[in-house]
Nucleic acid binder design. Structure first.
Lengths: 144, 144
DNA sequence: TTAGTTATAACTAAATCGGTTATAACAAAC
DNA sequence: GTTTGTTATAACCGATTTAGTTATAACTAA
């Protein structure tokens, strides 16, 4: 019913623009690009800073990456802005593994294990895509 | 920051219990197993009914599956209870592909494509796991 | 000193969530 | 036909998250 927050795709977009044009990327500029509010941008950037992916030039504006674009994966960004304050589990699984009913207990443990594997499939994919790859793809589609 | 709803793991658990002991599975019984409220159970079952995965004996209680356990995949359940009222996209991607800035436009399109592929990795995995497989695993861990 | 910027707190409106209560309808047993 | 146990569903609640906004303070370079 509910999607994840838009911070993840926005975070990717922000870092990509910073990679291309560091000094140009003020909060206002990025907000115009992403059609949102500068404070929303700065909140996302604050999370990316906490993950040591980016640094910001306070006062004067602009930002720059703290890693090279091929060393930043989409999983890094995902975890920086989407996985906070909890164990990182996407699915909301309640632990019934110590139920007095053995079937429920066993089922619960197996559901938990299986869903976490499903999540890992997604995260493994995100870990394989670097910011550089995304930039390459985008420039390639631009050239056509 | 936010996990998905607990309807998905609960829906799996509910269908598994129905598969094992159809007549026993009243709303009250299932609620005790999952440690929640009968109405919560019935809301989930209502979504599973809409997806034609289960039928319920109104008045007398109990439920039964409308497909065999090896023809119900976790993806079926996921889509029945977690993906409703929107296009099924997990990530909240805003369409910036018609931005006046060509870089932003191209980036947006590629972010969208990449994240949807990440989602597909997860859904493909869910599609490979049947309810029967989950039951087999659970009985196997019980036997040990 | 000024202008442009970042940092951050506080607040809002909207949506979703899990849960609860209440009411009506249903089906089988007696 | 009544009773009993159940399903179906609407209405509501409090908590939480979200994106956005406003306001204030601090920073940096010109």
């Amino acid at each position: 019913m509910k999607k994840l927050s838009c911070r993840f795709p926005m975070g990717i977009h922000i870092l990509a623009l910073i990679a291309i044009q560091p000094t140009l990327c003020t909060g206002d500029y990025l907000a115009k690009q992403l059609q949102t509010n500068p404070v929303v941008i700065r909140k996302i950037i604050a999370m990316l800073k906490k993950a040591k992916l980016v640094q910001v030039r306070a006062g004067v504006g602009g930002a720059s990456l703290l890693k090279s674009t091929d060393q930043i994966t989409l999983l890094d960004i995902y975890k920086a802005v989407e996985v906070v304050d909890h164990d990182g589990e996407l699915f909301n699984i309640r632990d019934e593994s110590n139920s007095s009913c053995q079937i429920t207990s066993s089922l619960s443990a197996n559901i938990c294990e299986t869903l976490n594997e499903a999540q890992q499939m997604m995260e493994q994919y995100l870990a394989q895509i670097s910011l550089q790859q995304l930039l390459d793809q985008s420039f390639h589609s631009l050239a056509q």
